[in-house]
Nucleic acid binder design. Sequence first.
DNA 1: TCTTAAATAGGAATTATTCCTATTTAAAAT
DNA 2: ATTTTAAATAGGAATAATTCCTATTTAAGA
Lengths: 147, 147
Amino acid sequence: MEKSFSEIKELLIRKGLKATHQRIVIYHLLFNSFEHPTAELLFDKLKINNPSISLGTVYKTLDTFVQTGLAEKVLSETGSDRYDANLSSHHHIYYTDTKEIVDFYDSELQDLIIAFLNKKSIPNLKIKDFKIQIHGEKIDMVENQIN
Amino acid sequence: MEKSFSEIKELLIRKGLKATHQRIVIYHLLFNSFEHPTAELLFDKLKINNPSISLGTVYKTLDTFVQTGLAEKVLSETGSDRYDANLSSHHHIYYTDTKEIVDFYDSELQDLIIAFLNKKSIPNLKIKDFKIQIHGEKIDMVENQIN
DNA sequence: TCTTAAATAGGAATTATTCCTATTTAAAAT
DNA sequence: ATTTTAAATAGGAATAATTCCTATTTAAGA
């Protein structure tokens, strides 16, 4: 579900943020990215249509989004921080060979773990949420069929 | 289960690594740390008994350990990389307030998820392992009892 | 003990991120 | 519609984390 600039503007205001052009275009690009981009990658793409945008603003804005719950950081072992504005509960598949991080939705798994955690309470911990990373290798199906 | 220096030496050799003094003391300290330390933290502690050890060596050695499967990086949102030499399958509790990362063992949860993943195969993915982070706040039980 | 390939120390270089401040801008007040 | 003002931005400097470089040292095998 695509979000228009005016919808994003409303969203920012609803979160108590000043709806600046930079925030709108950063949110728009992040929301429509599926590769969990770094600040630098977003910056490079944004520069095309917003030549005067600065990298510092991209960093600061992403941090603002994380603080206000509009985005989250995706944990990654590869140097830079990566971000995600898709906040529906989902997990991630980490392809160890290609370094891709791909969204993984599975309500059955989700329900299974929620049920487990609700049943078994962990001493001294108030659970807010949980994340799963599934690590593995990409299997090229076409290649497999040929061989 | 504590590991002696000579056991660590054997372990390094078994992995095809030269059993240098630096590697032995770094492994020993990491293996006996439960806070998932950063390279810098290990370095500060190691300096006490090994004044000439260098930070570069600590970084390089940790990387060598990860490559050879003697340790792994623990995903974290807080600046520096953190490491763990405890390789028995376990997950992590992230205390959002105290920033602690604590090991979490639960064979029931482990079995539940393994059974699920075995049953449901994900197209084009050969699963190697998976990690769960449970995020939450620390509840101080004593304080709770008083109030 | 000697040889040698690999590892280390120490510091320089690089990368990622945060910080600083003069200028600009969104939005509230007029 | 204009003015006001507090907050946000651009641009670059500063900092933090990590990697790289190379002369020296060392583990392990001959």
